[in-house]
Design a protein around this nucleic acid. Structure first.
Lengths: 415, 415
DNA sequence: CCAAACTTATTAAAATATTTTAAAAAATAT
DNA sequence: ATATTTTTTAAAATATTTTAATAAGTTTGG
């Protein structure tokens, strides 16, 4: 099932290689633009119309591309439109959380073609790769996907990850760190691995609230403060995969001890940690609040969602706690904005659900700490489809790699 | 003098356009790699060797390219090497400072082909464009440059600049803000305009201490703290051209008033402002120091260089002042490092000349404020050719645009 | 150290592919 | 209804790639 007739990619002759590249370019264009006319394709890949048609016909023959009605014309014959075939290319997307993984399969129109499968695992699970393989097989079989049409596996997971080599340095057992290589061996397909916050950012950029904004910042606001950065329309990893570690910068001189070992990190004053810790203190001091009434005897059950819900029903104590972490995150964002001058900041994660109870104090902080002419141009919004952002991001990234725009081509036996 | 024989770029036929693009690609490759063999070029632009040779011969005919000896071989005939012709393409580079402008001309090997001309002007000078034109003509005539071979003018200047439209929003008189358009009209050639700190950063990235480092930060450390950012090998402007404004972030809660109107900006504690202000205070208090001896009766003459020189000769007061601004900048850089995980930070500008007197306190700050696993990978170095960085940067950027990698092609009547 | 075997580059021709041109088809605007 | 615009198709013209032969080196083995 390949773009060039019955040959190994490694011994394509010059012209076959040329056509192979052109076809990949066409697939990439169709992925990006959904539908295109023959004329549009010929001009975009820089060949004449008859040549473009020949290439398109061959792609149709192999079921990668199909015609899709006619397009609009400004006075003249309507053009035939082409799009990627609905069942041409699938990718498996997997998101690994602290205790469980989510998995689903997307087609080249970024439509989910299976349900979302969940299974228990974690980044230090030695059986991780095997579990991913077994569960992928379950999805493939249950939903009758043609396995030969599955061209890659994308995985996002917590930790410090080298995007190119697909190594997760946070995994304790050194032998299991090379996640990409191990998955590639198990599946025999292309694999892409990156950090969860960054893939959520990419998902928001390609499909979500940051769509169309070339310079965007996406915050995963929860127990930590993950940050994904999009610069000039590209995902930014940093030189060793640490970009966006705002969470562990010092904001309070002699502040609380942070899990990272330092004191007074932003995370200690602007995340769920602060929320729960200070809610507990208040409850112990019998502050007037719903939270005191509900959680006095079961503080260990208190979750960030509970504080948010209390705030939404008007609880002043909960509101004041959210106000504090909003101000604190706002201060952190103000540095970020001054340094990076983004178009948009998208907030996701549990705390973002507090909506105006955090948006207002964030804005107050920006007013205080930013130059007006910089901060007045940045939009701060709450993500609308956070649950899928990470899966969609990893799927989009995989398609980008498959179509060869990012990595050097011919590295994998695709198409 | 064009790549395609005697035609206007706007009515090139399909195949002529194709060849035009291929030739531009070859020029770009030769600009990047300096010399290449025919085989290398054919594989890099994706055509067969005979085709590449045809293109190269045509480029040689028009004097854009020349053969340049033979290359190395690992067992076989030595290849003919090609390079850009020494006198094929020139660009004018101009750097506008507070009170004067510097100008010179580079060839496509980034060699200066004229002296550096200096003339008095400023960003609010209504005669700016005319002065640039007149002085460019002087250089062209004095050094007998073929004016038809000058393909563009690059200008870097202070202020908030929209790179694409070439508009400097900091210019007071609105009618004179569109610097790019006005220069293009006057010269009839391609023009590139951007902010000075960013062009210095680009210069350091392409030719200087940041060469080869895909993620680099370049600091212009003087009265302000300018910052240029390189991400994934590309210059980053931010969404409205404000990227790198670390200088005006709040670092001291109730600090000194800054020129920006806010209080306690980094600039008030980490720039020449702090140095001179606090040196003056010390001198008034008759602190034991060379500076007191030399400047007691002429404080208005005190320059940052004087403090640096005093420190170099062992003056403890001067050393302590430099130590303070080093610690302060270090704190600012630690946020930047945590957020952006760069490979290298290059320091330029007057204060960087204090070398170890500032490098040591900067490092101390990083140790205090950064996670070790992030900061341990970043190199902090002093620029080695700061005086030319801005001119070289703008010249390199212009060549990138000329060869069509960045902007859409055919926009200008080049080649 | 020299000749034979092996590489790699260049050139010229034959084979193949692409672009151009022109004509037909299908739709829109006047 | 006719002229205009745009797409599609097919043939002719042009360009590119392949192939094969030649040239110019390097390496190896006697």
């Amino acid at each position: 099932m390949i773009l060039a007739k019955g040959k190994n990619r490694n011994d394509l002759s010059g012209n076959e290689l040329k056509k192979f590249r052109q076809k990949k370019k066409i697939l990439h264009l169709l992925y990006q633009y959904h539908t295109l006319s023959g004329t549009a394709i010929s001009s975009k890949i820089g060949v004449s119309f008859p040549t473009a048609l020949t290439l398109l016909n061959e792609l149709c023959e192999f079921k990668f591309v199909e015609t899709f009605g006619t397009g609009v014309s400004s006075g003249g014959r309507k053009p035939n439109m082409y799009r990627l075939s609905n069942e041409s290319i699938y990718v498996i997307a997997c998101e690994l959380g602290r205790y469980k993984a989510k998995m689903t399969i997307y087609n080249s129109h970024n439509n989910q073609v299976t349900s979302i499968l969940t299974f228990a695992t974690n980044i230090d699970d030695n059986e991780l790769v095997e579990k991913i393989y077994v569960n992928a097989q379950r999805l493939i079989q249950e939903f009758k996907i043609d396995e030969n049409r599955v061209y890659g596996i994308g995985l996002n997971m917590p930790g410090l990850i080298d995007e190119n080599r697909g190594i997760n340095h946070t995994i304790k057992n050194e032998e299991y760190r090379n996640v990409k290589e191990r998955l590639e061996t198990r599946f025999g397909k292309m694999v892409y691995v990156n950090n969860d916050a960054r893939m959520q950012a990419y998902g928001e950029y390609i499909f979500g609230s940051a769509k169309g904004h070339l310079n965007a910042i996406v915050v995963n606001w929860n127990w930590g403060i993950g940050m994904g950065l999009i610069f000039n329309g590209n995902l930014y990893n940093g030189s060793t995969g640490f970009a966006g570690e705002l969470s562990h910068t010092k904001f309070v001189d002699e502040g609380d001890l942070c899990i990272c070992g330092k004191r007074g990190c932003l995370e200690t004053v602007a995340s769920s940690n602060f929320l729960i810790k200070n809610a507990a203190i208040g409850i112990n001091e019998n502050v007037v609040s719903q939270l005191t009434l509900s959680f006095k005897n079961r503080q260990q059950d208190l979750q960030p969602e509970d504080v948010i819900n209390a705030a939404k029903s008007g609880d002043e104590f909960a509101i004041s706690l959210l106000n504090k972490i909003g101000m604190a995150l706002g201060k952190g964002l103000s540095f970020t904005i001054q340094l990076l001058n983004p178009e948009i900041i998208v907030l996701g994660g549990v705390i973002s659900q507090a909506n105006r109870f955090v948006l207002t104090p964030i804005q107050q902080s920006l007013n205080k700490y930013c130059l007006d002419k910089i901060s007045s141009n940045v939009k701060i919004v709450i993500s609308e489809n956070w649950e899928q952002a990470g899966l969609l991001g990893v799927s989009a990234m995989l398609f980008q790699h498959l179509f060869g725009d990012i990595h050097s081509e011919l590295k994998y036996e695709n198409f």
